[in-house]
C-alpha cells in the first residue's frame, strides 16, 4: 500500500514512503517536519493548508501525494525566496496582518499565487482569490491592504515600527 515518492519540495529532492492517497498536508507536516503548513478543516474549506504546486495555490489537505509527480511544491518556509513571496511577507510585517497567526501561512501562499497571476489585483480579484481562506481573528481588512501594499508599494494603513536601536532613536523626546 505504501509507495516511495521522490518529491520536489522547496527546490529540494525529498523522498518519502507513504500511501499514495496521503494528503500532502500530512506528508509535509508529519513525514517531513515542515510544520508551517497548517491543518484547519481537512476538507478544503479553510485554506490554512495552502501550498503552491508549480506556483499555483492548492489546498494540500486534499492533494494526494500520489498526484504530485514531478510538480514543484513550495511551502511557507520557502516562499520568501521568490520576488512576490518576499514582497508579500514584507508587507504582512509592515502593516502587521497576523494576530494569532495560524491561518497566515495559507493566506500568504494564496496572496503570492494571486500576485503571480495578477500583479496589481483589483478588489474583486482579491475577493475572488482570498475568499477561500478563513481567518477566525478577522484580519481580512489588513490582508487586503497588505496585498495592495505588496503590489504597489503604497498604503494608507498604519505602518508598524520595528523594534530595534534604530527605530528607538527615531523617537523624539517631547
Amino acid at each position: 500500500m505504501r509507495s516511495t515518492f521522490t518529491l520536489n519540495i522547496n527546490d529540494e529532492r525529498r523522498t518519502v514512503t507513504a500511501p499514495p492517497r496521503m494528503p500532502m498536508l500530512w506528508v509535509l507536516r508529519d513525514l517531513l517536519a515542515l510544520t508551517g503548513t497548517k491543518y484547519g478543516c481537512g476538507i478544503a474549506q479553510c485554506g490554512a493548508c495552502t501550498v503552491h504546486l508549480d506556483g499555483k495555490a492548492l489546498r494540500s489537505c486534499v492533494l494526494p501525494v500520489g498526484d504530485v509527480g514531478d510538480g514543484h511544491i513550495t511551502t511557507i518556509e520557502a516562499v520568501g525566496r521568490t520576488d512576490n513571496g518576499e514582497k508579500v511577507q514584507r508587507a504582512w510585517m509592515e502593516i502587521e496582518v497576523a494576530q494569532c497567526g495560524y491561518c497566515q501561512p495559507g493566506q500568504i501562499m494564496a496572496a503570492v499565487a494571486l500576485l503571480n497571476e495578477r500583479p496589481a489585483p483589483a478588489d474583486f480579484e482579491i475577493d475572488a482569490a482570498m475568499s477561500g481562506n478563513l481567518c477566525r481573528c478577522g484580519t481580512y481588512p489588513r490582508i487586503r491592504e497588505a496585498i495592495k501594499l505588496a503590489a504597489t508599494g503604497k498604503t494608507d494603513a498604519m505602518r508598524t515600527l520595528v523594534i530595534g536601536p534604530s527605530a528607538d532613536s527615531e523617537v523624539k523626546e517631547p
Binding site: 508551517g36 497548517k38 491543518y39 511577507q89 497576523a98 497566515q104 500568504i108 508598524t160 515600527l161 523617537v171
Partner: peptide
C-alpha cells in the same frame, strides 16, 4: 506608538510553533 509585535516576524515566515507543531 505602533510597535511591531515581537511575534509578528515568525508568524509571517511560518516559523511560529503552535501547540499542534
Amino acid at each position: 506608538k505602533p510597535w511591531q509585535r515581537t511575534d509578528t516576524r515568525d508568524k509571517v515566515l511560518g516559523a511560529t510553533r503552535f501547540g499542534i507543531d
